[in-house]
Amino acid sequence: MIIKASHIDKYFDQPERHQVLHGVSLEIAQGELVSIYGESGSGKSTLLYILSTLDTDFGGKLWIKDQNIKDVSAGDLTNFRNQHIGFVYQFHYLLPEFDVLQNIMLPAMKMGVKTKEQIKEDALLLLQEVGMQDFAKRPSYQLSGGQQQRVAIARALINNPDLIVADEPTGNLDQKNTEMVFDLLKKITEEKGKTVIMATHNSKIYQNSHRAIEMIDGSVRL
């Protein structure tokens, strides 16, 4: 199991204290493509941020790659995340000051394990995999939404993480681009053995995932 979550509770204090997640338990195996769907406000994003270790202020227990997340210090968690988890968001959030290639390289440059040349090579390979090899030197803001999301997926993969967390990655895309992005995510689970966990509204996507988990008012329906 790459993710094991047990009885996760989440409260927010604003505007007043209220519970958003109610004892969520789930297990996700390596290589799975899991969709979480449900109404807006049901807690999908909240759960994803906890599962991706961005939010550590929760009740219950969480293991990722057999590591109890609550045992890891904040500084080590940043490195852990950088190494094991890649992110894709609804808005791709490429950094406009950098070109496409540089955007993909940034997470790896921070990790500092590979040389810059290696990182560049890897980034170019990933660009090829997402079909964007011709755009390497383009400023990122010149790309269309679908193109940017493909670059964002390449960026999520640069440190070769086992887990990709995507929050409504197709939420802003048209039908054609939605399919292209979904196919890409599916391909990386099937060909590379990555685990993808994503929140989505799109029924076509969750029906075609390996597994679909429905969230209702902060609880998962099993």
Partner: peptide, 9 residues
């Protein structure tokens, strides 16, 4: 962008 940089480590 700063938030994104933070999620990148």
């Amino acid at each position: 962008d700063i938030a994104v940089l933070k999620t990148m480590g």
